[in-house]
Each structure stands twice: as structure tokens, then as C-alpha cells.
């Protein structure tokens, strides 16, 4: 799988290509006044290649980010990764309270306040 460093390098290289082709088209428009729509072939190819690579880079930057929408798939994935699904709080509740200890503690506290 592509790492984010690879996609970042794709994005930066193709951005440079796009800027270069844009500047080339601008320079070409300066020297060819009057001639309509006569972009050189290499500039055209450079533009198309840079846009294609940029699309790949942008899509790769966002890969691994989609989450499955089905409840069963999603909770299964959460349980495998984190150990507890979306309803994990229901499974980690306390059992019974030890009411006698609590009562004894309360009695001690009430006595100490008197």
C-alpha cells in the first residue's frame, strides 16, 4: 500500500509540473500573438500528465479513510481493532455493589461527622 510520504511526493512533483506547464503556456502566448489556440504538443502532454498524477496523489492521500457503512461490518472491525465495539460500554458495566461495605463506610463517615 502507498504511504502518505509517497502520495505527498507525487502531489509535489506533479504540482511543479503543472506550474511549469502553466508558465510555458503563458510564455508561448506572449510570443505568438494572433495565432489562435496553438499550444505546443509538449506543453499539452505535460499538463495532462501532471493533472493525471495530481489526481492519483489526491486520491491516494485520502485512501484508508473510508469507513464501512454496514453496522455488522463496522462493529466487527472495531472489535478486532480496539477490542470493543460501539456498544462496549454495555459490556463493561459493574457487577453487584457490595452494599454491606458501603453501609459500613457510610456509618463510619456519619459517626466521624458527629
Amino acid at each position: 500500500m502507498f504511504t502518505s510520504a509517497k502520495s505527498a511526493s507525487i502531489v509535489s512533483i506533479s504540482t511543479l509540473l503543472l506550474i511549469h506547464s502553466c508558465y510555458s503556456a503563458y510564455e508561448h502566448s506572449l510570443i505568438s500573438i494572433g495565432a489562435k489556440n496553438s499550444l505546443p504538443l509538449d506543453v499539452t502532454i505535460e499538463t495532462l500528465v501532471s493533472v493525471f498524477l495530481l489526481c492519483v496523489g489526491i486520491v491516494l492521500n485520502n485512501s484508508q479513510e473510508l469507513k464501512p457503512i454496514s453496522w455488522s461490518v463496522w462493529s466487527g472491525q472495531l472489535e478486532r481493532e480496539r477490542g470493543s465495539g460501539p456498544y462496549g460500554y454495555l459490556e463493561e458495566r459493574l457487577g453487584f455493589l457490595d452494599i454491606r461495605t458501603k453501609r459500613a463506610e457510610f456509618a463510619k463517615w456519619a459517626e466521624s461527622n458527629e
Binding site: 502553466c22 503556456a25 499538463t47 493533472v51 489526491i58 473510508l66 469507513k67
Partner: peptide
């Protein structure tokens, strides 16, 4: 919602990118 937002982000980025390319190509 999260998936739709991811797709929308990619679409708006690449949409303006295609605009740049279409402008350069004339």
C-alpha cells in the same frame, strides 16, 4: 456522512484542478 464528505473533498479539489488544466489547454 463521513464517506460522502471524503468524496466531496476529493471532488472539489480535483474539480478546480481540471479547471486549471482546461484553462491552460485553452
Amino acid at each position: 456522512l463521513h464517506n460522502t464528505k471524503t468524496v466531496t473533498d476529493i471532488r472539489s479539489l480535483t474539480g478546480s484542478l481540471f479547471g486549471v488544466a482546461a484553462g491552460i489547454l485553452g
